[in-house]
Design a protein around this nucleic acid. Structure first.
Lengths: 202, 202
DNA sequence: TCTATTACTAGAACGAAATTCTAGTTACCA
DNA sequence: TGGTAACTAGAATTTCGTTCTAGTAATAGA
């Protein structure tokens, strides 16, 4: 998309407009889901024209993609920042659960967006997500590697760690977000953190 | 939908046709996702007319709904059947994990359908699902209640059991189905079953 | 300051895909 | 054997994402 890789830099007002569109879109997505909101909904909520939307984002999914990617990066950065303040494996594992729980409660709409499976990612976005995920997982494994080496954390198939540690809290949050049950995840945070630690401690 | 609540009973050939449509639709959904397949795709694959599809299912989502509901019921029945052959809490908890794993591997396409979030359920379908879920959860809790009472299984917030027991295997299967990693869940089945038991044993 | 370039806005036109409508045809029951 | 309702068929309509065309406005370079 030439329009999204301008040869001349963007104008100052552009960032503001994009941000306002993203905010409006997130509100719409939160209310009616991605598939349930039309371009017109977003257009009206953001007070801008169709042309403007397509100029900045290229497509409806482009908007969702940007929200999704921003959201994931925000979540990832927060997680790594939290981890770096931990002293050992136990603290780290429990921090992962706690941080996921806290972030989801603080960013309910965004969390709902990350859980929704109905964004048709473009090849470009898929590649970007893969890269983000690779970097993130790399950083996470690098952080935990020493704890595994010294025996504080069990040696397991690599694909097993994330489901064992984050699976329960993710599932709980997913159910909470979709209105399946009313009890916010704060209630089970430490319970699930303990369970996660039990599942992977050496 | 009057056409789906006929005042006169359905004809014998109807079930057959509906089944062939569902089969064709599942194949399409598995290949291109629910959003990625058109009514025409299904129509061609099932060798029937648009009118016929709408007569029997009311909408594209109606087809997806029926697959989804059939799938969930199949999964649930299998689970309960398996549980009833267990002698104690430990066997039961581990059976839940194992059965979910086995079923997902045996019914990959259906499992993918159950994990997909892009079916827009009608109010009617939502109600039906709620009812199915209520019955199922009721049966599950009834099965486990004695083990909790005798202390073999821990007392926990009710909403915590499912995520603690099934969260990890569900997350693992989800990642496997979406091609995130290539290792089939059989590899971690007993590992996750043990973890589940550890999380809830008394 | 003037001018060329390009970001940006706007909304009408277009096209694809879901759904509805109309016109039958076929099976079953009285 | 006639009436009724399930069922089939596909053309017409609608909805909605996207593209196109025609501008306006900011900025860089002369």
């Amino acid at each position: 998309m030439a329009s999204r890789n301008p040869s001349r830099p963007e104008r100052p007002a552009t960032l503001e407009r994009k941000a306002s569109v993203l905010e409006a879109a997130l509100a719409c997505f939160a209310k009616n889901g991605v598939d349930g909101t039309t371009i017109q909904d977003i257009q009206r909520a953001a007070n801008c024209s169709i042309g403007s939307l397509y100029h900045h984002f290229g497509s409806k999914d482009g908007i969702a993609e940007e929200l999704f990617i921003d959201g994931i990066q925000n979540l990832n950065h927060g997680m790594l920042a939290k981890l770096r303040r931990c002293k050992n494996g136990e603290e780290s594992v429990k921090a992962v659960v706690g941080q996921y729980c806290d972030w989801s409660m603080r960013n309910k709409d965004l969390a709902r967006c990350l859980h929704s499976r109905d964004i048709e990612f473009s090849g470009e976005a898929r590649a970007r997500l893969k890269e983000i995920h690779r970097d993130y997982i790399g950083a996470i494994y690098a952080w935990f590697a020493p704890f595994v080496e010294c025996g504080e954390v069990r040696v397991l198939p690599v694909d097993a760690y994330v489901p064992l540690i984050s699976g329960p809290i993710q599932e709980y949050v997913r159910r909470w977000l979709s209105g399946h049950h009313p009890n916010p995840p704060a209630k089970v945070k430490t319970l699930f953190a303990d369970a996660a630690w039990n599942a992977v401690k050496g």
